[in-house]
């Protein structure tokens, strides 16, 4: 067990577990900064996991799913289409809550339930199976091998050979940070999320800004979903999001909805997941082990609330 923890494989397994949560955490951050709790992340991820398999199989059909360049091209088609659909789902969600004034939590629950049932129905319609997409020849995201670094001991095995999407998820942290804190649109998003009236009083359309934020949120969530069926695993299985959308909500909120903070907490959850994976080799009952990531979420949220409460108390006293 300890040997397992101090191995290169374990670090890789952390990164593997972190990637989908990280995408979803960024998705949650951008929505939260715009003042919306995007609880629909779970459903968005699940839908994208299935679309990822379907679209990359489509890409495979066009380019052939061999190796090298054609693998990259078919993955590219699948990925881009999935992200596009993810953006559209985000927009539909935005339409429901901003235009139709549906309660954001209820709309999210509806979307999550539709995703859970809808993906199985769609899978059934396409493959005739209800559980998994074994029958579809989907194309997974390529791994990135870095020629020189590859040969460095330990570090080389970590830096090289990672899934392309893992790199992309790390990049998304930087991009989201720059976007939210350095661009005019980011400033608008933060202003709308914090004081809608103030933003509107200077002529910012809060609705438009929230539409944009939710579209971006949907796109990021779909990247996380794509990774689940095209990286973490090589197929779609029913309900494979497995609460990651909710974990991401917790991670984002614990990280004060900032990309950097969310990134750090995501890694924590990644570690919990990796430990759980590792412990499956022991004799401890499976059910207990599977609780670990969720238990970590619960404890994390508890700690977060406690710290925030203390901080607020101190602020009140200092006044």
């Amino acid at each position: 067990m300890l040997n397992g923890i101090f191995s290169v494989e374990f670090v890789n397994s952390i990164l593997r577990a972190t990637t989908p949560i990280l995408f979803a955490t960024m998705a949650s951050s951008v929505a939260a900064k715009a003042g919306i709790c995007n609880m629909a992340l779970e459903g968005m991820m699940l839908l994208s996991a299935l679309f990822g398999v379907l679209f990359s199989a489509l890409g495979g059909g066009i380019f052939g799913a061999a190796t090298g360049l054609s693998q990259f091209a078919s993955f590219g088609v699948g990925f881009l289409l999935t992200v596009l659909v993810g953006g559209i789902i985000g927009m539909i969600f935005a339409f429901c809550i901003l235009q139709m004034k549906a309660d954001e939590i209820l709309a999210a629950i509806a979307l999550n339930l539709v995703a859970s049932g809808g993906t199985i129905m769609l899978l059934m319609a396409v493959t005739g199976e209800k559980g998994a997409s074994n029958a579809i020849a989907s194309v997974a995201a390529p791994k990135v091998t870095i020629p020189l670094i590859e040969s460095i001991p330990v570090l080389g095995k970590i830096l090289s050979g990672q899934n392309l999407l893992t790199w992309l998820s790390l990049l998304s942290v930087v991009v989201m940070h720059l976007f939210l804190y350095k661009t005019p649109m980011g400033l608008k998003i933060r202003a709308v999320g914090e004081n809608k009236d103030a933003a509107e009083s200077v002529g910012i359309s809060a609705k438009k800004v929230q539409y944009i934020a939710l579209t971006i949120s949907g796109m990021l969530a779909s990247m996380g979903g794509f990774y689940l069926s095209g990286g973490y695993m090589n197929m779609f299985t029913r309900d494979m999001a497995a609460g990651r959308g909710y974990i991401a909500l917790a991670a984002s909120s614990m990280g004060a909805d900032t990309p950097i903070g969310g990134f750090l907490v995501s890694i924590l959850f990644g570690i919990a997941q990796a430990v759980a994976n590792l412990m499956q080799l022991t004799t401890i009952p499976m059910q207990l082990i599977q609780m670990i990531p969720y238990l970590t979420t619960l404890i994390g949220l508890g700690v977060y609330s406690y710290v925030r409460m203390k901080r607020r108390k101190r602020l009140l006293q200092s006044e």
Binding site: L187, K188, A191, E194, A198, A199, G203
Partner: peptide, 13 residues
């Protein structure tokens, strides 16, 4: 907007 700086509030939008 409380968490933004004075300058950011002035130029907002």
């Amino acid at each position: 907007v409380p968490s933004l700086s004075v300058a950011e509030n002035i130029i907002l939008g």
